[in-house]
Nucleic acid binder design. Structure first.
Lengths: 229, 229
DNA sequence: GCGTGCTGGTGTACGCCGTACACCTTCCGA
DNA sequence: TCGGAAGGTGTACGGCGTACACCAGCACGC
């Protein structure tokens, strides 16, 4: 009986653990990912996981490595701006496939080798595009999390609420926050098909990505060195 | 005896709870802020807190309101760019006084009235500066968390490590991540006084803030309406 | 053939956490 | 004087991450 059980299931490996964790987070959300929970989906006792990952932090690191591993390599043969743009949009697609990833990423305190590798190749794209070492340095800071394909939206999608819409409350909103109201009504009017936040996230992402990339190209062309004034 | 105790300590109020929570987070870090812990510093039993805040999420919301309340109001009488710049730097100063705030902010799913008020006035500054409604909308997305004075640095300050520096490991780094090494050695060389990450966070913040603001001014002056092309 | 030691899964237990719920004061207004 | 609200208490529950001791099975040198 024991033997059957043992034989039936494939032996745990670090890789199996990570993949199962990614799947679990994809399916039921990152909040539902606990060591106990993950162990259960693998048909194993919680402590068994610790033979393959040191602790939960390392588990999360490994999960992010899986996600970052899905990002396409750089495309060759175009100008730096198009190449960087395309790569970042690839990163974005990877992150969108795993909605928990950006939130987890924000909690990391150190980069794994996989992430360092990605960063390094990203820096290489700027250097190859004619950016000086120190401009590239500031560029990486300016790109921030966008380099990994997400911009932390303050107050992401609110949890679905079944509260009835109170017209009185809407009036108070309009009174207290006139500018917010101005924008939200305009957006709602322009895009009647909208149900969620009313914003086209992809457009917003590309808008600000291009804003930054264009700014950087101008600095590069101008031969920016230090504080220009 | 009981009476003495009761009389001695000031009665709890929502305000006292929030201030104590902010102080505690400032002093010992956000991870050390638990309901039990907070209650103890207030000389009260954990459940007492729940008479003043609904739950921990609401406590965190309230703490952020305290921080946002410290941001200076807009300065009048300058061009939009200087005004926005100054206000954002004020927000940054507030956030720097409470290092936990940006991390907590990232976990919020809805804005409180205090935050909405801040956002609204910020939007107003762009509108007053001559931005159209829909450009302003995209502007707010492009600014992202920068509007509140922080840019989420991927992999913020690493926890202090007392591990001895392994020269062999450094050589491997240089081999595996040539571009990262190029930058870090240059930064370390330029700024010999540095001990931490080697980056002047304030400079990096202003660099990318100005990059964005300059880009926005150009869009505004050009009369940007929709996808330019 | 047989100890021996390693790899990986198990079971129990600890100390945290947020918070539901029932209780008991205290005090104020009718 | 009394009723009830407001605010502090005590106990308890279910969850979490994980330390630690244990044990099954296998590979290998003798």
């Amino acid at each position: 009986m024991r033997q059957v059980d043992t034989l039936r299931r494939a032996p745990l490996t670090r890789d199996r653990v990570l993949r199962a964790a990614v799947d679990l987070a994809d399916g039921t959300g990152i909040d539902a990912l606990s060591m106990r929970n993950l162990a259960q989906t693998l048909g194993v006792v919680p402590m068994a996981l610790y033979k393959h990952v040191a602790n939960k932090e390392e588990l999360l690191d490994g999960m992010l490595d899986v996600v970052v591993g899905e990002i396409d390599p750089p495309v060759a043969g175009t100008d730096w701006q198009a190449a960087v743009r395309e790569r970042i949009l690839s990163a974005r697609r990877a992150l969108l496939r795993h909605p928990w990833a950006s939130r987890v990423l924000e909690t990391r305190t150190a980069a794994t080798p996989v992430v360092l590798q990605y960063m390094d190749s990203m820096i290489g794209m700027f250097r190859a595009g004619g950016f000086s070492v120190d401009l590239t340095h500031h560029v990486m800071h300016a790109m921030g999390s966008r380099i990994l394909g997400f911009s932390q939206e303050l107050f992401g999608t609110p949890p679905p609420s079944d509260a009835p819409i109170d017209p009185e409350l809407g009036r108070q909103m309009a009174e207290r926050y006139p500018y917010i109201t101005e924008i939200t009504t305009k957006v709602a009017h322009d895009d009647a098909s909208v149900v969620g936040s009313g914003c086209d996230d992809q457009f917003e992402f590309e808008f600000s990505l291009d804003l930054i990339l264009d700014g950087l190209e101008r600095l590069r062309a101008r031969g920016w060195t230090s504080r220009p004034d």
